[in-house]
Every structure is written in structure tokens, then in C-alpha cells.
Computed example of a mutant assay.
Amino acid sequence: MRAYYYDDEPTDQRLPHDSGEPVSLDTLAHLGVLYWTIPVAEGESIPEGVDAIAKQRGYKNRDVINVSKEGLGDAYESKIKGFFEEHMHEDEEIRYILGGSGFFDVRKHAPAPNQERWIRIFCAPGDLIVLPSGIYHRFTLDTNNKIKAARLFQQDEPKWIPHNRGPATDSNPYRAEYVATIQPVSVA
């Protein structure tokens, strides 16, 4: 995993967009983003270390998603577009990367919207990331155009409904609870 501020250049979303300004694990933790590295071998099932974290955090269920042209078929283009829309969920988003790679962008909350910045998090095999309920985020593949990830969740049926950013979502109780748990961090 590597985290840094997004450069906001209007080019292909799958490019690194590295501003050259690294972001620490402490900054991510302040935003509620949790991270572990648990090595996985090519073709290996989910390692015991992931099971231990799942048990500790109360994740009871899981599935595996293959985000690629082959894995999503005709829905590929619409899914990729939808994943990159700024949104939040009412549940945590938990992903363990089994293969491929991609980027999770999280919105660094600030006192005013014009002070917010995207933080880009590059994830590759062995990375386990937890995005808290209520955080604005988006996802894209990198130029390899594929990622295979285990999705862990607490309920039988996760509430992965994306709530795109807007006035209604800004006042969503899960968003309000998230904002109340963090204090704005000044933008460098």
C-alpha cells in the first residue's frame, strides 16, 4: 500500500496521479481508514491472518469479486464508471486484495469543501483496507485493468448502496456520524 495526495490532473483516472506528497498511516487512521498487510501467494485462498481480523472486527460473511472485463462482462464499463463516482456507504467497505491492483481514493474532510483533498491509496495483493461508514470515497483500477478482492461484511446482506455526494448525502445520518468522529485536518 502506498498513499499520497491525488494530483487532480484531468487525465486517465487509472494513472497514478501522484502529487509527490505522501500520506502517512497516521493520517489515514485519523480519517478512520484502517490498513493491514497480510501476504498472499498467487492463487492462494484467503490467509488465516485475514480470518483473525475478520473475527476481531465481527465480519461474518465474505465473497470474492473479480473486477475486470472478463469478470464483469457487459457491466464492466458501467461498473467502473459507478465505482469512480464520489460516494459513501452506510456500512464499512472492507477489501482484501488477492490479485491485481487498483486505487481507493478517500476524501480528506476539511472545514470547507474547497479545502478538501483526495488521498489516493494504491492497493496490491496482500493489502487489507477498511473504509469507515460515511467516508466519501471512490475506486478505480490501475492500467492493468483488473483486481480480485475479497469483500468482508458484518451482515448477511451488506448495504453497499452507493450514496453519491450531494446535499441529501451530506445530511445522511451515517455521514453526520462519520464527520462527528473526526476533526478536520488542515490541508498542507
Rank of each mutant, 00 (worst) to 15 (best):
D170Y: 09
E42N: 15
Q56N: 12
G99V: 00
E48D: 12
A110M: 11
R2G: 06
Y76L: 05
I119N: 14
R107T: 05
A124W: 03
A180G: 02
S19A: 02
W160K: 09
G58Y: 12
E77I: 04
W118G: 13
I147P: 13
T143I: 08
G82L: 02
T143V: 13
L25T: 07
E44W: 04
D18P: 00
K146A: 10
V179G: 04
R57W: 04
I94W: 12
A149D: 01
Y6I: 03
G100Q: 03
G32C: 10
Y174L: 05
L152W: 04
R107H: 05
R2P: 04
G58W: 11
D63R: 11
A110V: 09
R117C: 08
Y76G: 10
A149E: 00
F153H: 10
H89V: 07
Q183F: 01
R2Q: 12
M1E: 04
A176I: 08
I94R: 03
E85R: 08
E177D: 11
G43K: 06
I38N: 06
S186A: 14
L28Y: 04
V106M: 05
R165V: 13
K79Q: 09
I94F: 13
V23Y: 08
P10I: 02
I119E: 14
I129R: 03
I65K: 10
N66I: 13
I80P: 08
T140K: 02
I119C: 13
G71K: 06
I119F: 07
V33P: 09
D18A: 06
P111T: 02
P132N: 14
